[in-house]
Simulated scan of single mutants.
Amino acid sequence: MIDTKVRRWLPTWFGGRRTPEVFRPRGTSSRVSRLAAQYDAEVDAALRRLWPKARIYHDREFTRDRADFLLVVRGRGVMIETKVKSDPGLFRGSTLPPLLDRLQRDGRRLLVLVNQGDPTPARDLINTKLGDRGRIVVWSGPHHDTDLRQAVEALLDQTTRHA
């Protein structure tokens, strides 16, 4: 059936959106959205496996300035942002600046998990904004659990809260 309500489709001709970004599915396509949901579930399972006594909070709302997970281990927290790439190329981190700006102000620690690719450009961006309070790791399954554990523990071992 064709939508005949002019007020619904006319704004899209002039750059308007039908739905606000917060209600849009994660990712840029349905394939990437499904991959992102699956990846988040795998990351959640890995966090529960590696830190069974930890508290894990998952932000179910899509926003660019909040991390996907908060992992609290031994009373210390690490924000975890997951990123899904559909190709094995470079991960530049173009969607990270709003989150990095917020965490830079808050003084929190951040771990970015990427499912594949070379994270070198994003690593430089994270180091510039957060310094030693930020890390990026390629994690695509249990065979990368050692890297995940080392990155989280390094962030948790920081004794001072940075301003």
Rank of each mutant, 00 (worst) to 15 (best):
D3T: 03
D3Y: 00
T4D: 07
K5C: 00
V6L: 02
R7I: 00
R7L: 01
R8L: 11
R8D: 10
L10V: 02
L10T: 03
P11D: 02
T12K: 08
T12L: 10
G15I: 02
R17H: 05
T19M: 09
P20V: 14
P20C: 04
V22M: 05
F23M: 12
F23T: 09
P25Q: 12
G27Y: 08
T28N: 14
T28R: 15
S29E: 06
R31A: 11
V32N: 04
R34M: 04
A36Y: 05
A37H: 05
Q38V: 05
Y39S: 02
Y39T: 03
E42G: 02
V43K: 00
V43C: 10
V43P: 04
A45M: 10
A46Q: 01
R49G: 06
R49M: 00
L50C: 00
W51Q: 03
P52A: 04
I56M: 05
H58G: 01
R60N: 04
E61G: 11
F62C: 03
T63P: 02
D65H: 15
A67C: 07
D68N: 04
F69R: 04
G75K: 13
G77K: 11
I80V: 15
K83N: 10
K83M: 01
V84N: 14
V84A: 14
S86F: 01
S86T: 13
D87L: 02
P88S: 11
G89P: 05
F91M: 10
R92V: 11
G93D: 13
S94A: 15
L96Y: 14
L99H: 08
D101S: 14
D101A: 13
R102G: 07
D106K: 15
D106W: 08
R109C: 09
V112R: 11
V112Y: 06
L113T: 03
V114I: 14
Q116Y: 03
G117A: 01
D118M: 06
D118Y: 07
P121V: 02
A122L: 06
R123T: 10
I126C: 04
N127Y: 06
T128G: 07
K129H: 13
G134Q: 10
G134H: 12
G134K: 11
W139G: 03
P142K: 11
H143F: 08
H143I: 08
D145R: 04
D147C: 10
L148A: 06
Q150P: 00
Q150R: 11
Q150V: 04
V152M: 00
E153A: 09
A154Q: 12
A154M: 04
L155S: 07
D157H: 08
D157M: 04
T159A: 10
T159E: 15
R161C: 07
H162I: 00
A163N: 08
A163K: 05
A163Q: 12
